[in-house]
Simulated scan of single mutants.
Amino acid sequence: MELEVRHLRALCAIADAGSLHKAARQLGMSQPSLTTQLRRIENALGAELFSRGRTGCRPTALGRSVLSRARPLVADMAALVTETLAEAARVEGPELRVGSTASRALPGWLRRLRERFPGTDVGLRVDVSANALLREVAGGRLDVAFVHEVEGCPLRVPDGLVRRVLVSREPQFISLAPAHPAAARPVVDLADLARDHWMVDPSVDGEWDGLRRVLTAAGIDPPVLHGDYHTAASLIALGEAVAPCQPTSVPREDLAVRPLRGDPLAVRLTLYARPTTPLAPLHATLTDAYREAARRSPAYRSWLRDGGTAGPCLLPDRP
């Protein structure tokens, strides 16, 4: 087996993510496929490159040696691709490459960007990993990234990026079945959910660590299920679980959305770019889109009007 750039990129992703599961998500492949690929690489080299354990994957001594040589090669290849695409863009027309973690403000932001920059090809990449998007910006593969940072779990921001904060502290609400006893109240206490199964996606940077910190501080230890939030929605509707959710979430007939008392869970919403990217118009259009998303959520609209701390600039317009 001959090592190719894709193999080196996979090794770097595993080292950066610290687990095969997270690395597979970042690479857009299944974990079994990545595990098989890693096994083939190690068989070709005749030794283990990562030690696997319950806490994740860590490079062995040989793995660190291989990574020290692989990273420059991967970076050079990424630079080659970036420069080629940039040259093509100069011929074909302007391009704006946008990255984002999940957000209900995203559709409105894209619409406003296309209105603000007519003739510009606005491309989009959505990723569960904010850290992965920041690396893409630093590497020149994205122009801007809109990411959330879980409180108490700092992102690994590459050197040289500039930022504009959209919301310094966005509260995370709770999604639960309408028949849940706590759903009858406008604000939910964590203690009311102590016996519920909590659903969390561990592949989202900081999500599980942030939730665990808050639950521990509240003195409760509920059962936790790990899975993506599409699966969570089905379980919540059946009354089998509860889950943190964005305050811009819109309630459905089978899902209720409520704020948590004291806002113990929160994230910071930020735009990151390289210094050559003008952030002011991107920030202005995103602010308008976020305000629009907030207006569509009854729970968030009430929270903001009652003095929520997200910031006066985000108070939704009166209907």
Rank of each mutant, 00 (worst) to 15 (best):
162 V>W: 03
4 E>A: 12
163 R>W: 14
93 G>Q: 05
70 A>R: 06
134 L>E: 03
161 L>R: 08
7 H>C: 02
270 T>I: 08
110 L>P: 10
59 P>W: 03
109 W>P: 05
108 G>P: 04
285 T>F: 01
116 R>S: 09
41 I>F: 05
76 D>T: 01
188 V>Q: 06
285 T>V: 11
13 A>M: 01
11 L>R: 13
12 C>T: 14
193 L>P: 12
127 D>N: 09
299 A>S: 08
218 A>S: 01
268 R>Q: 15
291 R>I: 00
201 D>G: 01
47 A>W: 03
102 A>M: 10
314 L>Q: 03
145 A>R: 10
121 D>F: 14
213 R>L: 06
16 D>T: 09
287 T>E: 10
32 P>T: 07
73 L>G: 02
240 E>V: 09
17 A>Y: 00
160 G>R: 05
113 L>G: 13
133 L>R: 04
220 I>V: 15
180 H>S: 08
126 V>D: 02
31 Q>G: 13
27 L>P: 05
224 V>S: 00
176 L>F: 00
128 V>Q: 13
55 T>K: 15
191 A>S: 12
238 L>E: 14
140 G>T: 02
203 S>G: 11
132 A>L: 01
168 S>A: 07
83 E>D: 06
317 D>Y: 02
167 V>L: 15
308 G>F: 12
100 S>L: 11
64 R>C: 10
306 D>S: 08
18 G>I: 02
291 R>V: 01
192 D>H: 03
82 T>E: 11
189 D>Y: 00
141 R>M: 14
39 R>E: 10
